[in-house]
Design a protein around this nucleic acid. Sequence first.
DNA 1: CGGAACTTTGACACATATCAAAGTGTGTGG
DNA 2: CCACACACTTTGATATGTGTCAAAGTTCCG
Lengths: 265, 265
Amino acid sequence: MTTNSSVRIIPALRRAPDDAAATPKSGESAQCRTTCSTCNLRELCLPCCGLTRSEMDVADRLVFHRSRVRRGESLYRSGDRFTSLYAVRNGFFKSTALLENGRDQVTGFSMTGEVLGMDGIGPERHTCNTIALEDSDVCAIPFAGLQELAHEIPGLQRHFHKMMSREIVRENGVMLLLGSMNADERLSMFLLNLSQRLAARGYSPTEFNLRMTRGEIGSYLGLKLETVSRTFSKFQEEGLIGVQQKFIRVLDSAGLELVMGRELG
Amino acid sequence: MTTNSSVRIIPALRRAPDDAAATPKSGESAQCRTTCSTCNLRELCLPCCGLTRSEMDVADRLVFHRSRVRRGESLYRSGDRFTSLYAVRNGFFKSTALLENGRDQVTGFSMTGEVLGMDGIGPERHTCNTIALEDSDVCAIPFAGLQELAHEIPGLQRHFHKMMSREIVRENGVMLLLGSMNADERLSMFLLNLSQRLAARGYSPTEFNLRMTRGEIGSYLGLKLETVSRTFSKFQEEGLIGVQQKFIRVLDSAGLELVMGRELG
DNA sequence: CGGAACTTTGACACATATCAAAGTGTGTGG
DNA sequence: CCACACACTTTGATATGTGTCAAAGTTCCG
């Protein structure tokens, strides 16, 4: 199973492997308007993916609001009226859902090129909180406008459907993980998935900085933070990974994959 | 949280509260062709939901294959080419996903009026197995045709998007359940959800027959069948429910809801 | 430099899994 | 129609993985 946390928009994207947190210089968190044909991320962004030149002209009728979300700030909150999807242009987010009894849980992590907010389409309100784990840039895609556009560009409609479907498949994968895997398996799957998604974006699949805490990983994987920490330590002793706080080095990815298969032979 | 297992197509549907397993007389499992305007389930079915008379005429261009799936048979299997969505006209299904190491897990139960197969849209192949737990009737909706139709009927497109989105929200709910609830909470949520969905279809919310085994419930909830059985027994001792094999009587639904809240006060 | 947030590690508790055996119901073939 | 086999369920005894509680260690940031 390959759990793609959040839906990936493009299969691959080359980029300088600069894994350092993008600390922006300009402090304004102001929005700015932009269009698809002037967007430097258009090979990757939702509505523009695979459009022809003439379709792009149509697409430019749709105006996006690009905005910055600072670390710790919400992109949207549960209960907010749903108006837009958000393409992550740069950065890292967590989504959490709140149970009525007060507990909440991380339901996904999203990185560059993934689209957030699809849970809101049906209820017309967002059903989870999405918070930036580092200073991030997103492109807000007004849903109504997207729909009009998709009506004229069948390829876009199809693309959008696949995106939603993949989110369903991703969540299916998480259900399997939560329902039938032990702590070792969960964590090795988590690491392999992260590694794979980073690789698809041109980053190193073997060395990266985690953007989330042990507690957030645990919440996502249905484990307590102490268990996450212990399992990291165990993997390190076994030579599977190197751990220095948030910096992870995947030393034996085949070994990690074995962790998931070995309980049954 | 209200976990709607599979996406509900209509908010409510009145029906004679005949909960007995529909054992069909005619033995043929042959397909028959039908159109929306002659369908006796159209108030409930996907493409016809909320269409005007003239839109219905358009909809009739789309021909559906109605077919029967006998208990134990597959509606589709993981890996099958995706061509159609399936509206459950009558009956009960489970969907299971297989992990590469051999284990498999129930990812959802579906009943009348719910739509199956949305996981296949993205990958263009089904990603889970769906098996009838009783003799069932489905309506196969060719996806390509549905798309054409939706292009002409905006309300249908919107309806379809909401349906997919709700499936995402449902799975989110299951993730919460699997990630942060104990056995009591999981089972009471399961029962309440089932009860609620039955009520929405005009069946009794307080007395019903389970269509699945303890093992299947356990697989869905991330528990072993013995734990499911023990928890049923415990709920019975506490006067929350009555259990006689597959026949369940909800005696104290408020009490069941309390089970989910009481750990935190 | 000091405090806050996060991480690691240990000791122990507990919920659920595992293993086992008996009980119940159901369908089939004689 | 009975009897047998099979699938499912219940219950008990025990094992174990993960949670809980606690304390010390580390890093980060103001």
